[in-house]
Design a protein around this nucleic acid. Structure first.
Length: 867
RNA sequence: GCACGGGUUGGGGAGCGGUCAAACCCACCAGACUCAAAAUCUGGUCGCUUAGUGCGUUCAACGGUUCGAAUCCGUUCCCGUGCACCA
């Protein structure tokens, strides 16, 4: 069949009829969103296509279920990669990006994805990033956007600052080879930490999100309850943070971070030189080595006073204490913390045990337990002691309960061109002045020079402005925003993409949002997916929306690898393009294949051979409908159809596409064999339509329906028509047929003259019923045996019963499902059919059969004698 | 180290207490059709056996719970992913 013309025909038709364009109405809405792509110059490969296909199947399914489905698409066009790629190609990022987008739109359209193309969002469009700037101003207003001098992660390759989330193992997330350096710069931050607690706590309410993602976010935000305790050092109070105040009597030294900003207040004259040497040594080693380094430190010369027992304990500066977590200083309890333990061993510091437990030469005892050597707290369990000692410290005004987070504020400054300009003006007189809302957007100037440093610095006309406050000369902020800013709220803009007055209409956003089903990669678990939650909460606090989480359900799709499981990449030359596949097999076949291999959240490999199977299937479907001849449904057909509808409906909802495709295959096999009704055939087309939309559309029309199957009603199922017994009957008849064929072959019988079918003795079926009645669903051997022996008609088969029961127990104990039908009767019914095929058929019970002496067996299928 | 997720028959991949020697796809084998091949169709592919029912051994390893375990629990080994000196 000519896939290409069918695809083009329907894509055109869908487009012309604006089938997937939606507006707010009374119908129940459903918002399906696949994360928008960054339009790379190299275009989209089959792996990207798969991601979108997964979302598209879902959207099509929901649309047929009569939801008002919004499935938009857009482009995350700003960002470093585009800028770098453009520079490399000697193009302006704007032109480069626009070309890439054009290419993407072309490629996406040919995939037949059911997007509402009228809502495209492009983050590089000033009409879009204007609202990024607007949000920035709101944040600034609320004190959530602020500037501070800070040590930042600097990627020399990107030539810019990275957020904590973008540093991986000390390396840049985009440059696996490039070590991130620490630089001190004045940077813009979003105070995401103000939302840390809510971001952490409400993860539990996201039950439509994968468990793993939720765990990762929790881990990332890292909330821990603890106690802040102040220790007196040289007459001044220094705070530390601990989650184990129960071990405070075991403190034998203190460690302050080597990067602590007030470190030298603690260092005595005598120790100054040594501390300086220590710091010098730390600076000379690379980041990575630092990570692998042993716990090291140096004595500062100062002593702290333990607030619970007034012991004087030495204060060290150490390389293993983080300056920016907790207080930058810790109390060290070598007996009950492994790091402190190693440190104490190394420097010969006293180890004082205060929790009852075993400490070895190698390891501290880090579990909780009963307190010892802790004066009035002796004998108390850790968990209680934590409370009691904290209360005691609070009373003494030496401590307080605090909550600490690992999450840091989000550094959004980037010293690059292709991002949203930060709408700030620096005035010598007025200081930091926000650009007035009416002057938005602050557009990126086209004229800049790319080379070293921030390109925006090269356009003086753009930089030099008049201060909106005092009218004097001032300078624009030249930092641009992290690209994750753009993607943190785009889902809302889709609801009202062309609004020039407002960021979006409150009612429109209220109708469409939040996202019902969000789809995107695992890699976003800790970046984009935290930021988007943060933005949602902030916008809710501004009163723009009335929900606090962006997406009800989240799904992560698996990766598509190249042939043989090798990661698809240009350098390996194994990139598969959707165009190529389309040309050869049709995009529907490709969709079918990719979704058949594995469940959509698992990775899968491309296989040129594998797709043949899907092609075969597609062709068979086509052939069947080509004939356009239908018959009538048997009970079996109706049962199978309804069961399939039931299963497939549930499975698509759970993203179990692979298993639902198998069921659809099996349904089709039945349809093919049994010449079913037109209605059933049509229902099959509908069930297939989310997966193979073009072909189903074509066949739908071919058998005399009006377009479009794409918005036909999803079939409903009738539970009453589903009969598992019928399925069993079908399989028994099938087995008999297959056996006859096989025996015929084996015994080299040219023409079958007669077939004798021997079914299980009748008493067994009766016995089964008795056992079922007595034991219900959970049979017990003895009870069942006794019940059987009570019955007169069973007694005569006493010897066999035991064997029978044994088999019964092993094989058929789920009594709900054991077939109650009389095998003999069933076969009698289909006798004419079998006779037509094979000749004379005789059916008898095993006890009547001379040939078969019952062998203590409970046949699972009828035995045969073929002549 | 911590946190998740896994290890299933030649490959991929379902199954997650009983109808399980385990869906489905691929690969392979045999048969039909054909002069032949491709395509298509039919059957087979853990072992033994039978004309057929049948039996034995399997779902990383070892133990446990259960009348019954690929499925539940414990321990161990291996693999993947994320965070990693977070006090």
């Amino acid at each position: 069949m000519d896939f290409k013309s069918v695809e083009e025909k329907w894509q055109k038709s869908w487009g012309e009829s604006k089938l997937f364009e939606v507006r707010e109405d009374k119908k129940k809405k459903f918002y399906v969103l696949s994360m928008f792509p960054y339009p790379s110059g190299s275009g989209l490969h089959l792996g990207h296509a798969l991601n979108f296909v997964i979302g598209d199947v879902f959207a099509r399914f929901k649309r047929m279920q009569d939801f008002n489905v919004l499935q938009p698409m857009g482009f995350d066009a700003l960002g470093l990669p585009a800028e770098n790629a453009a520079i490399k190609a000697c193009e302006h990022p704007e032109d480069y990006t626009n070309n890439s987008i054009k290419n993407y739109v072309r490629q996406l359209s040919s995939l037949g994805l059911s997007y509402d193309w009228s809502r495209v969002v492009n983050t590089a469009d000033p009409d879009y990033y204007k609202w990024d700037q607007w949000i920035f101003l709101k944040m600034f207003e609320k004190g959530l956007a602020y500037q501070k001098e800070s040590a930042v992660n600097w990627c020399p390759e990107c030539n810019t600052v990275l957020a904590n989330e973008q540093v991986q193992n000390g390396f840049c997330w985009r440059h696996e080879e490039t070590k991130v350096k620490i630089k001190h710069l004045k940077q813009w931050f979003f105070k995401i930490t103000d939302y840390a607690d809510e971001l952490y706590e409400s993860i539990d309410s996201l039950d439509g999100w994968p468990q793993k993602t939720r765990a990762m976010q929790k881990n990332w935000i890292g909330k821990s309850h603890g106690t802040e305790i102040s220790f007196e050092i040289n007459g001044k109070n220094w705070n530390i943070f601990t989650t184990r105040p129960d071990t405070i009597f075991g403190v034998t030294f203190m460690v302050v971070s080597a990067q602590h900003k007030n470190l030298f207040e603690l260092v005595t004259k005598e120790q100054k030189k040594e501390v300086e040497n220590f710091l010098k040594r730390l600076n000379s080693v690379s980041e990575k080595e630092l990570e692998l380094m042993e716990k090291e430190g140096v004595f500062t010369g100062s002593y702290a006073v333990n607030p619970v027992n007034n012991e004087k304990i030495p204060v060290y500066a150490g390389n293993f204490v983080l300056a920016d977590y907790g207080c930058g200083m810790v109390m060290a309890v070598p007996a009950h913390d492994q790091r402190d333990f190693e440190f104490a061993k190394k420097y010969g510091i006293k180890i004082k045990q205060v929790i009852d437990g075993k400490i070895t030469e190698q390891r501290a005892f880090t579990n909780e337990g009963k307190l010892i050597n802790s004066k009035e707290f002796d004998g108390i369990e850790s968990n209680k002691a934590i409370e009691k000692i904290t209360d005691f410290l609070i009373e003494q005004k030496k401590g307080k309960r605090v909550v600490n987070f690992k999450l840091r504020d989000w550094g959004i400054s980037r010293q690059r061109y292709w991002g949203t300009p930060i709408p700030i003006i620096h005035c010598e007189k007025c200081g930091v002045v926000p650009v007035p809302e009416k002057d938005l957007p602050v557009k990126l100037p086209r004229q800049v020079k790319f080379g070293s440093g921030n390109p925006l610095l090269t356009n003086k006309d753009w930089i030099n402005v008049i201060c909106p406050k005092c009218g004097n000369n001032a300078r624009r902020e030249t930092d641009t925003m992290d690209t994750f800013v753009n993607s943190s709220w785009y889902f809302l803009r889709y609801a009202d993409p062309k609004n020039n007055e407002k960021i979006f209409d409150k009612e429109k956003a209220g109708y469409w949002c939040p996202i019902d089903q969000y789809i995107g990669g695992y890699e976003h678990a800790c970046m984009h997916l935290i930021y988007i939650r943060f933005y949602t909460k902030f916008l809710a606090d501004l009163g723009l929306i009335n929900f606090r989480e962006p997406a009800k359900k989240l799904f992560h799709q698996g990766m598509l690898n190249g042939e043989g499981g090798v990661k698809m990449s240009k350098s390996k030359g194994n990139v598969v393009l959707p165009e190529t596949v389309s040309e050869k097999y049709g995009i529907d076949t490709a969709r079918l294949f990719l979704l058949s291999i594995a469940s959509p959240d698992k990775p899968r490999d491309w296989s040129e051979k594998g797709i043949q199977g899907s092609l075969k299937f597609v062709n068979r479907i086509f052939d069947y409908f080509e004939k356009n001849v239908f018959g009538e449904d048997s009970k079996q057909t109706l049962s199978k159809l309804n069961k399939t509808i039931k299963d497939v409906t549930k499975e698509i909802d759970n993203f179990e596409y692979n298993t639902s495709l198998i069921k659809l295959r099996q349904l089709f096999e039945h349809i093919e064999k049994n010449r079913v009704s037109k209605d059933t055939s049509e229902k099959f087309l509908k069930l297939m339509s989310p997966f193979c939309s073009h072909i189903m559309e074509e066949l739908w029309e071919k058998i005399g329906n009006k377009p479009f199957i794409s918005n036909a009603k999803w079939p409903s199922f009738n539970e009453e028509l589903i009969d598992e017994q019928l399925e069993r009957i079908e399989s028994i008849i099938d087995l008999v047929r297959q056996d006859i064929i096989k025996i015929k072959e084996l015994a080299k019988i040219e023409k079958v003259s007669s077939v004798k079918i021997i079914v299980a003795p009748k008493w067994k079926w009766d016995a089964l019923k008795i056992v079922k009645n007595v034991c219900g669903e959970k049979p017990d051997f003895r009870i069942a045996m006794n019940a059987l022996m009570e019955k007169e008609e069973m007694k005569k088969n006493g010897k066999e019963i035991q064997g029978f029961l044994k088999v019964l127990m092993n094989k058929y104990n789920d009594f709900k499902l054991v077939n109650e039908f009389d095998e003999k009767k069933v076969l009698e019914e289909v006798k004419p059919l079998l006779e037509k095929e094979f000749g004379v058929i005789e059916i008898e019970n095993a006890e009547e059969s001379k040939e078969i002496k019952a062998k203590n067996a409970f046949p699972t299928k009828p035995a045969l004698i073929v002549q």
